[in-house]
């Protein structure tokens, strides 16, 4: 096995894993706080890809040419709009059903993911869309005395930096601010938290917003990297990000990032060295196996069912 290929696959895996990790944060935080899977989260990611392209086009129309400024503006604007989608999702699919059966919010979330998918399809058309490549060029790294080079494009570098930076910022927010404290308190015991004067409804909404914003970062980065997307992408990426969340231990924030990286790397190696056609099958099988044999994941706590 050539070292260069190995290194290249590792790099691809890291990039893939970083985006899975970002999306997985949304799943894991929502699960932590309300104990439910947010099925429409993948579609939130899909929406963010469209929003990215639209804002790029709008900025281009207004003649903004400074690439770094443009990227920053697009990132912030996309995060804002996507976060709003996340907030709306919670407001429509989850809040009215608090205290109803377990099944009901899951079904509304699936309904909403169908709505989002088709809303985007009907508004933007079914064909795949794209953005122009903004950052061209790459670093080349030579490994030892090997002739072949490992290519890291600027976009890939950007992905790794932004992904890890945003994860770090989120960790700081969750551990060192009053908002983070309120989130963690609500996660521990919602009734107690509300008795202590925490507006738990607002905290739950905030968690959806944060999750959506993280998915938006992933959406911007992936769109920059691949350049094309369609209204279907939310589905498969959503399941994979969920797999990452489960792999790391659902409910655990570092777990989501770790799970993302592990999934990204293993998927990249699988498609590089075994079979690229079956890489989705591999990811889904991993999901099924993890859920069966270690549902608490790497960093999660085994559940104690209260009787």
């Amino acid at each position: 096995m050539e070292l260069a290929i190995l290194a290249q696959q590792t790099l691809n895996g890291l990039i893939l894993g970083a985006t899975y990790g970002l999306i997985a944060i949304g799943y894991t935080m929502v699960y932590g706080i309300i104990g439910m899977i947010n099925f429409a989260h993948g579609e939130i990611y899909m929406v963010s890809a469209y929003v990215t392209a639209i804002f790029l086009a709008v900025l281009h129309y207004f003649g903004l040419a400074n690439v770094p400024l443009m990227l920053l503006a697009v990132l912030l604007a996309t995060m804002f709009v996507t976060a709003l989608y996340g907030w709306f999702l919670e407001r429509i699919a989850y809040r009215p059903l608090r205290g109803s059966t377990r099944l009901a919010p899951l079904i509304t979330a699936i309904g909403l993911s169908l709505i989002l998918q088709n809303y985007v399809r009907l508004s933007q058309g079914a064909r795949s869309q794209g953005i122009p490549s903004l950052l061209q060029g790459s670093f080349a790294i030579t490994l030892g005395n090997d002739e072949r080079l490992v290519q890291i494009t600027y976009v890939q570098t950007l992905i790794i930096i932004v992904a890890f930076l945003s994860m770090a910022i989120l960790t700081v927010i969750m551990h060192h601010t009053s908002l983070g404290r309120a989130c963690r308190a609500t996660e521990q015991d919602r009734i107690m938290a509300s008795l202590l004067g925490i507006d738990t409804d607002r905290i739950i909404a905030t968690v959806f917003v944060i999750g959506a914003a993280m998915a938006a970062i992933a959406g911007v980065l992936v769109t920059l990297n691949y350049g094309s997307f369609d209204f279907h992408i939310g589905f498969v990426t959503g399941i994979k990000a969920f797999t990452a969340a489960v792999l790391g231990g659902i409910g655990s924030l570092p777990g989501a990032m770790l799970g993302g990286l592990v999934l990204g790397l293993s998927e990249s190696f699988f498609s590089g060295f075994v079979n690229a056609d079956y890489k989705d099958v591999f990811a889904f099988s991993l999901l099924v196996l993890v859920l069966i044999f270690r549902p608490s994941g790497f960093l999660g706590h085994p559940q104690v069912v209260k009787v």
């Binding site: 104990g35 899977i37 099925f39 377990r102 899951l106 399941i239 489960v246 889904f284 999901l287 859920l291």
Partner: peptide, 16 residues
């Protein structure tokens, strides 16, 4: 397993 996991596992299985 926990109820919600069933949903996602069956989803994965359907795709597989």
């Amino acid at each position: 397993m926990h109820g919600d996991y069933l949903a996602i596992v069956t989803l994965g299985f359907g795709e597989i």
